[in-house]
């Protein structure tokens, strides 16, 4: 018996190329697609392929054109201590900011999802940092961190603490810029958690309460597992952001002091646009892409089995 054709399935049978066939309609279809194909190719696909190719070639210098060098660029990169410093920094940065931002986001979402007075205003307040451009956020925090006059030192001064230059001290600078990222990201992730929490029917909580579950048990046994798909989504985004958002580094530290806040993407900018070392920059780009792609892949493969999608 033939099974009925479903709308979400392509018709079975002989494979057809999209737009295969002849006539004016096919031409029109391709013409309609042309603008977006051109844009995508010009600004995404071609540069990506060019970068990949460049990573195997030397940087052209003066009259010496670029030539194939195999894996030399990566060997050089491996011998660059600043690359390793940036990689270590970025790993610490990711490990420090992601759990904090996600944990804070979940806590805020649970809080403003409850029956509390003024929760609309609270949701707004928590979300505000997301709306601000990172440059503006960096400026606000720059003021917070200003020695003597900044918010932190003024508060510390009330308790008799001495002025500190948190951004100027290599031992605290990385933590200082991480705090900015947590502050900015948490509100954004909260919105996803809040949306997911509102999808959970309230009668599940009531059923669990009748069955004897405490609030904590309900969270552990029901809410948290039901939030798993959102958590996965947030984690993937958080990892990407941890390697991608460096605006505040430009504003606050310039990667210093002594590369204490140098992150991979910032290093990439330095190599590519300060030192014009195209070969090293390309090699680093490929490293960055491989790192991000494999982290995302691991997250999906590892978590995908355990996550319950509704």
């Amino acid at each position: 018996m033939r099974s009925p054709t479903r709308l979400d399935e392509p018709p079975r049978g002989r494979f057809r190329w999209p737009f295969a066939g002849s006539g004016r309609r096919t031409v029109e279809a391709w013409l309609l697609l042309l603008p977006s194909i051109v844009l995508f190719a010009a600004f995404t696909h071609v540069p990506f392929l060019r970068t990949f190719v460049d990573a195997f070639h030397s940087t052209p210098k003066g009259r010496r054109p670029s030539h194939f060098v195999g894996l030399d660029n990566w060997v050089d990169l491996a011998h660059d201590p600043i690359f390793w410093k940036a990689l270590t920094n970025n790993t610490l940065y990711a490990l420090g900011t992601i759990p904090l931002a996600v944990g804070l986001a979940l806590a805020m979402a649970l809080f403003v999802n409850g029956r509390i007075p003024g929760r609309a205003a609270l949701r707004m307040a928590y979300f505000t940092p997301t709306v601000l451009p990172m440059i503006a956020v960096a400026n606000i925090w720059l003021f917070f961190y200003t020695p003597d006059y900044g918010l932190f030192d003024q508060i510390g001064g009330l308790f008799g603490l001495a002025a500190t230059n948190r951004l100027g001290d290599p031992s605290t600078a990385l933590i200082a810029v991480m705090a900015v990222a947590v502050w900015k990201e948490a509100g954004f992730f909260m919105i996803f958690y809040l949306a997911a929490l509102q999808q959970i029917p309230p009668d599940l909580r009531e059923a669990a309460a009748i069955e004897g579950a405490s609030r904590f048990t309900f969270f552990r046994r029901v809410t948290w597992p039901l939030l798993a798909p959102v958590t996965l989504f947030i984690l993937v985004n958080a990892v990407i952001n941890a390697f991608r958002t460096v605006d505040h580094i430009f504003m606050m530290t310039g990667g210093g002091p002594d590369n204490a806040t140098n992150l991979l993407l910032f290093r990439l900018y330095e190599l590519g646009f300060k030192f014009w070392d195209q070969a090293q920059a390309s090699a680093l780009t490929v490293v960055l892409i491989v790192v991000l792609a494999s982290v995302a892949l691991v997250q999906f493969v590892f978590a995908g089995r355990k996550v319950h999608y509704r």
């Binding site: 029917p201 009668d203 579950a213 029901v222 039901l226 319950h308 509704r310």
Partner: peptide, 17 residues
């Protein structure tokens, strides 16, 4: 939980996961 009752909801309220 201390009322010695059980309940069947109109929506069943089963835990989907």
């Amino acid at each position: 939980k201390d009322r010695r009752i059980s309940m069947v909801f109109q929506s069943y309220a089963l835990f989907p996961h």
